[in-house]
């Protein structure tokens, strides 16, 4: 165990390991690119959908079931399927990552919207606010903490799952996991896993700091 950790430390800190096209720096950049792009696309789809459903109260049943349908999609199966159908491209990976992230965003946005006190909503309407004013000035700010929870959850999941890009021969930190598996090189597998975890934790902390900054005027 000690030996393994020592080798892992050496692997992570060796300058040669960080340089070049198969270096950690390059793989890290690829991994970030896959994850951030997928999460952005998923947010662009999931956030308006969740807000719309929460605001109108229509289509809740459909959306929540669609969301859990998306969450149930086995990522490996989806990637293999799109791969067999469409051939070698990054598309299968992005499709799978977006499909993974949208449900968490929709359900949490919707949950945040339903958690808004109906009295507050009524009061806003009673003051003569229009639908979009209620949505953007009352409901959205109140729902924001749960929305952020959804975004963080989605991002963590996407970062961890972006590993799969390497399964269909692309880059990212998953390269080390799958190459290590093929070469029976446990240090490399472990190194890849540690890096993915570190990226996810760092991004989660960043979002959490952003959340605290956004709500600095609010008392609990």
């Amino acid at each position: 165990m000690y030996e393994l950790l020592k080798n892992l430390g050496a692997w992570l800190t060796s300058g040669a390991q960080w340089a070049g096209s198969d270096g950690i720096a390059h793989r890290l950049a690829e991994h970030l690119q896959y994850s951030l792009l997928a999460t952005l696309v998923a947010t662009a789809i999931g956030l308006p959908l969740g807000l719309l459903i929460g605001h109108t109260g229509k289509g809740a049943f459909l959306a929540i079931n669609l969301a859990s349908f998306g969450r149930a999609l086995p990522t490996v199966g989806l990637v293999v399927l799109v791969f067999l159908a469409g051939g070698l491209s990054m598309l299968p990976v992005y499709v799978a990552l977006v499909a993974l992230a949208v449900p968490a965003i929709v359900t949490n946005t919707y949950a945040g919207m339903t958690a808004v006190d109906p009295d507050v909503r009524d009061a806003a309407r009673g003051q003569g606010m229009r639908g979009h004013q209620v949505l953007f000035q009352v409901e959205l700010p109140l729902a924001l903490p749960l929305i952020m929870t959804g975004l963080r959850l989605a991002l963590i999941q996407v970062v961890a799952t972006a590993t799969i890009a390497a399964y269909v021969s692309f880059g990212g930190l998953g390269r080390y996991v799958f190459d290590g598996l093929a070469q029976r090189d446990l240090v490399q597998v472990l190194g890849g896993a540690v890096l993915v975890a570190a990226v996810a934790v760092a991004l989660d902390l960043a979002l959490s700091a952003l959340q605290r900054f956004l709500f600095r005027h609010r008392t609990a």
Binding site: V177, A193, A197
Partner: peptide, 15 residues
């Protein structure tokens, strides 16, 4: 628990 969650599932199984 967040940290545990971030480890790619394939790596967890292998480890």
């Amino acid at each position: 628990s967040n940290v545990l969650f971030t480890i790619p599932s394939i790596a967890v199984f292998v480890l």
